[in-house]
Design a protein around this nucleic acid. Structure first.
Lengths: 91, 91
DNA sequence: TAGATATTTAGACAATCATCTAAATATCTA
DNA sequence: TAGATATTTAGATGATTGTCTAAATATCTA
């Protein structure tokens, strides 16, 4: 889990949109592409960045690829946040 | 609190480094500049981005400017994370 | 096997970004 | 007030990024 790749992945609004779609359930690359306003080539590119940051997982299903949020990473992201803002009374 | 400005602000390693320094206590722009490997002009630029994202606060002290982490923003950042990863058993 | 469908990869381009140096602004002090 | 100190602003530059179209790859089905 690389801090840099995670924060960079989250910095793009389209990628955050994709993550939010996936929160509700797994979707194929094509289904995801329909929910955002860029080409499927761009979506594919974004998905690969999310994958590299380990924020999403993918599995094959025929000619489709099914993406899902990697929820196990949440704790790591929370730890990063703590690393930046931690040690205050709100935690 | 703009999601976009916060995530973008956190995406840069130098800015995260500055936040970590400030976690331990308030510092002037010059003191911050000594702790990172860029010019004070660059640090000033980064600090303005952190300010715009409301992640740091600044107050004047003579010719110095004293920066500190805006800890109250942590809850908002946590909420953003929940918005992306939320609804899983780890929360 | 041919053609259709799903997705990724390659290559190009414009916009954004981090950084630098130099100059400007503001404040302190002798 | 002059000069020193602290910080920001302006302008330039090279690198990175998000996006597109076109082509490549992989899989399904008639």
């Amino acid at each position: 889990m690389q801090q840099q790749s995670v924060f960079k992945a989250l910095a793009d609004p389209t990628r955050r949109q994709l993550l939010q779609r996936l929160r509700k359930g797994s979707l194929s690359a094509g289904e995801l592409a329909e929910t955002v306003d860029v080409t499927s080539a761009s979506v594919s590119h974004h998905l690969s960045i999310l994958q590299q940051a380990d924020l999403v997982r993918v599995k094959r299903d025929g000619q489709r690829r099914i993406y899902s949020v990697n929820t196990t990473v949440f704790e790591d992201v929370a730890a990063m946040m703590y690393d930046l803002f931690g040690n205050n009374e709100k935690l």
